[in-house]
């Protein structure tokens, strides 16, 4: 290889103006056995650059995280489903009997009496309420005295 070409590229190299191809040329030259003596001093730089690229990453990559995550979510979903199921079941189980207990009366006479009793109870409490409405009449009268139409 022409020596002055190498010298020229080397000069450009230190100004960071070389292309990847030119840098490869330098690496090839300096990694060959016959380097001109006055350029010998640059040899280690280029020998090292080639050697340093040989180093490899040998450790394993722990990639289990993603799977573990989905298992966690699955178990969370499963336990929520079980809890909901049990909860709904017990809720229905304890609430239903009370509603059925209301029952029905088959004998019409007893039914009539029971209805009367119930209605009487309602009218009694309604009358109690109306009783206190009597006071309002007093207000009405005094209002009419003051604001005569």
């Amino acid at each position: 290889m022409a020596l002055d070409r190498i010298e020229k590229i080397l000069e450009k190299y230190f100004e960071a103006q070389t292309s990847i191809a030119e840098e490869k040329e330098l690496k090839d030259y300096f990694n060959s056995p016959d380097v001109a003596q006055h350029l010998e001093q640059y040899k280690p730089m280029f020998v090292y650059a080639v050697q340093a690229k040989q180093e490899q990453f040998t450790a394993t990559i722990p990639l289990k995280t993603n799977k573990r995550k989905s298992v966690v979510w699955l178990s969370v979903a499963a336990s929520v489903a079980v809890l909901l199921g049990v909860g709904l079941f017990t809720f229905n189980h304890y609430n239903q009997p009370e509603q059925e207990n209301l029952g029905t009366i088959n004998d019409p006479e007893i039914a009539f009496r029971e209805t009367q009793k119930a209605l009487a109870m309602i009218s009694e409490s309604v009358n109690k309420g109306i009783g206190s409405m009597g006071y309002l009449n007093e207000y009405e009268q005094s209002k009419n005295k003051i604001f005569k139409k």
Binding site: E55, F57, A59, I61, P62, L63, T65, N66
Partner: peptide
């Protein structure tokens, strides 16, 4: 990645840890 990490962190173990960390982050 490993060689770049080693250039900065110098120690091989730390560079391995860093590379693992980055690759796991990438996987996530």
């Amino acid at each position: 990645l490993f060689r770049v990490a080693k250039r900065l962190l110098v120690s091989t173990e730390e560079a391995e840890d860093a590379t693992q960390e980055v690759l796991v982050k990438l996987w996530n």
